[in-house]
Amino acid sequence: MKGAVHSIETFGSVDGPGIRYIIFLQGCNMRCRYCHNVDTWAPKREDTQFLDADELLDKAERYKTYWGNDGGITVSGGEALLQIDFLLELFTKAKKRGINTCIDTALQPFTRQEPFFSKFEELMKVTDLLLVDIKHIDPEAHKDLTANDNANILDGMRYLSDINKPIWIRHVLVPGITDDDEALRKTRAFIETLGNVQKIEVLPYHNLGVYKFKELGIKYTLEGTPAPSKERVENAEKILRGQI
């Protein structure tokens, strides 16, 4: 089995604990208006690499001496869970090699229906940590921002809490869209229902991916949106962490 790989980062320091070997898989059903990897949306491109699990792990282990006690591999995207069969094989083999495993996901494909759910259950047995995005707590605002509902995403987070699978929560702060104090407090109220949250990160919006939209002929709908101020980022962090 081979995975559709968009790119690889060998020394990642912000996508999980320690130094990470990050595998970006191709394909995503979300259409986030601020996406900086819009070139990962399509299931495959002319430059897509098709690699099997052993090929990827052999490449990753060249950097194992830099990982320390906390590092390992992180699979991101795109949306990694769209290639769940490949991901299950990759992580199963990674654990046999003693490699720490992490998934960076929006949980958009999550469902309790089969055949996905049984595969997800098995995947969680070989996954150490998930980095999970909360794009927006309000379903209509979430759909406007990503072209997808968030009901199954929140359900996926509840399931991860039920099985006590550790997660880090990430929230991209976009002025005028995701930085509303009321929405942030509702997000905090949801987080408080979960028992598996190890860390909460606020990621300031940036427009570094705009050129990719233009190259692909996709309209960028957040043109002119500024980065959030330091004060607004700190405010969001305090609200989401229950400090105010």
Score class of each variant (00 low, 15 high):
3 G>W: 05
4 A>W: 11
5 V>C: 13
5 V>D: 12
6 H>N: 05
7 S>W: 04
9 E>T: 06
10 T>Y: 09
11 F>Q: 07
12 G>K: 06
12 G>L: 14
13 S>H: 07
13 S>G: 05
17 P>S: 13
17 P>C: 15
18 G>C: 03
20 R>C: 12
21 Y>Q: 02
21 Y>M: 10
21 Y>A: 07
23 I>N: 13
25 L>W: 08
26 Q>A: 05
27 G>F: 03
27 G>K: 10
28 C>K: 02
28 C>H: 13
28 C>G: 12
29 N>V: 14
29 N>F: 12
29 N>T: 01
29 N>S: 14
30 M>I: 05
33 R>L: 14
34 Y>G: 11
34 Y>I: 04
35 C>S: 14
35 C>Q: 14
39 D>V: 06
40 T>C: 12
41 W>T: 08
41 W>M: 10
43 P>M: 11
52 D>V: 03
57 L>M: 12
58 D>Q: 10
59 K>R: 15
61 E>V: 07
61 E>C: 15
63 Y>L: 10
63 Y>Q: 07
65 T>Q: 11
66 Y>D: 00
68 G>P: 08
69 N>D: 13
70 D>I: 04
70 D>Y: 13
71 G>R: 11
71 G>E: 08
71 G>F: 07
73 I>N: 09
74 T>Q: 09
74 T>V: 07
76 S>H: 11
76 S>F: 04
77 G>M: 15
78 G>S: 11
80 A>H: 02
80 A>V: 02
80 A>Y: 06
80 A>D: 01
81 L>A: 12
81 L>N: 14
82 L>G: 02
82 L>V: 01
83 Q>F: 03
85 D>E: 12
87 L>G: 00
87 L>S: 01
88 L>P: 00
88 L>D: 03
91 F>T: 10
92 T>C: 02
92 T>E: 04
92 T>Y: 03
95 K>C: 00
96 K>D: 10
96 K>L: 07
98 G>H: 03
98 G>Q: 09
99 I>P: 09
100 N>L: 03
101 T>W: 13
101 T>H: 10
102 C>P: 00
103 I>E: 06
105 T>M: 06
106 A>R: 04
106 A>E: 05
108 Q>E: 12
109 P>F: 09
113 Q>C: 09
114 E>D: 12
114 E>V: 00
115 P>M: 13
115 P>T: 07
117 F>G: 06
120 F>C: 00
121 E>M: 01
121 E>I: 08
121 E>K: 15
121 E>P: 00
122 E>W: 00
123 L>R: 15
124 M>E: 00
124 M>V: 05
125 K>G: 04
126 V>C: 13
127 T>A: 10
129 L>R: 14
130 L>S: 10
130 L>H: 05
131 L>M: 15
132 V>I: 12
133 D>H: 02
134 I>H: 09
135 K>L: 15
135 K>T: 10
136 H>V: 03
136 H>S: 09
137 I>W: 12
137 I>P: 10
138 D>C: 08
138 D>H: 03
138 D>T: 10
138 D>E: 14
139 P>H: 10
139 P>M: 06
139 P>G: 09
